[in-house]
C-alpha cells in the first residue's frame, strides 16, 4: 500500500532556480528508503516537500492521503501529526531534560499528562536512553542527543519518519548506532523511513532501497541499492 506518491513534481523558486523537476516516485508503507545526491541536487527540497516545508510548484505530492500541494498553511499541522522529522542538528530545547524534550511534542498537541507519560517512556526506551531521562541535552553526547530527537519524532507513533542527514554530525560508530535504532523502528514498529544522507558506508551497509536525485531529477531508484549506483550514474552523465 502506497504511503507516498509523488507525480511529476516540480519546485521552481521565485528566482527561477529549478530545484526539483518532473520527479515521480512512490513509496510503500513500511519501506526504508535512502535519498542520496550531491549538495544542491534537490534532495533536500524533495525531503522538505514531504513534510510541507516546501510546496511543490507543479505536480502532486501525496503523503498519507494528504495532497501536500493543495494543503493550506493553516492545515499543515494535520500532515505533520502523521509524521516525525529528524535533523542533522537535533533541534533539542537546551533547557529541557530528555523526558521534557520528548514530552514537549505531545504537550504541544494537548494530550493529557496521564497519556503522555507512558508514551514518552516507551519512546525513550526504544532509543535506549532509559537511564538518562533527567539529563539535559548538554550532558549528552552527539549520538545520544540524536537519539532523543528520534524519540521525540516517534513518540506520537507516526506512520512516516523523515530523517534529513541524521548522522551528518556524528562519527562513524555513533552513526551505526543511530542506524540500528532506525532499522529497529522500521522493523518492529513498521514505520516507513525516508533518510537523506551523504554517508556512503551506511548506505552500502544497510542494503535498502536507494533513490538518487541529481539536478532535481530522479536519476535512479534501486531496491537493495548502494552508493555505487549513485557514482555510476554520475559517471554515465
Amino acid at each position: 500500500m502506497k504511503l507516498i506518491k509523488v507525480e511529476h513534481a516540480y519546485k521552481i523558486y521565485k528566482n527561477g532556480t529549478t530545484a526539483v523537476a518532473d520527479l515521480s516516485v512512490s513509496i510503500d508503507k513500511g519501506e526504508f528508503v535512502f535519498v542520496i545526491g550531491s549538495t544542491g541536487s534537490g534532495k533536500s527540497t524533495f525531503i522538505k516537500m514531504l513534510y510541507r516545508e516546501e510546496k511543490p510548484t507543479k505536480g502532486s505530492v501525496i503523503v498519507g492521503g494528504i495532497d501536500v500541494a493543495r494543503l493550506r498553511n493553516s492545515k499543515v499541522y494535520k500532515l505533520r501529526r502523521k509524521l516525525g522529522v529528524v535533523f542533522q542538528d537535533f533541534k533539542l530545547l537546551p533547557k529541557l531534560t530528555v523526558y521534557e524534550n520528548v514530552a514537549f511534542a505531545l504537550e504541544t498537541l494537548g494530550l493529557p499528562s496521564d497519556e503522555i507519560r507512558p508514551k514518552v517512556l516507551r519512546a525513550i526506551e526504544a532509543v535506549g536512553l532509559k537511564e538518562k531521562t533527567r539529563n539535559l541535552p548538554s550532558e549528552l553526547s552527539g549520538g545520544e542527543q540524536q537519539r532523543v530527537a528520534i524519540a521525540r519524532a516517534i513518540v506520537n507513533d507516526p506512520k512516516l519518519l523523515i530523517c534529513d542527514e541524521p548522522t551528518g554530525n556524528l562519527d562513524p560508530d555513533t552513526s551505526k548506532g543511530i542506524m540500528k535504532i532506525l532499522d529497529k523502528i522500521n522493523k518492529e514498529l513498521g514505520t516507513t523511513i525516508i533518510m537523506a544522507t551523504h554517508d556512503k558506508d551506511l548506505v552500502n551497509q544497510m542494503k535498502k532501497r536507494v533513490l538518487v536525485i541529481e539536478n532535481g531529477v530522479l536519476a535512479s531508484d534501486t531496491k537493495k541499492g548502494s552508493y555505487k549506483v549513485h557514482e555510476s550514474v554520475k559517471n554515465s552523465n
Binding site: 513534510y51 499541522y77 516525525g84 511534542a105 498537541l109
Partner: peptide, 14 residues
C-alpha cells in the same frame, strides 16, 4: 521551540 512545535504538528492557534 516554535520550529519544533510546527514540526510536531501544533496548530497555528496553539
Amino acid at each position: 521551540e516554535i520550529e519544533i512545535m510546527r514540526l510536531v504538528g501544533a496548530s497555528n492557534t496553539a
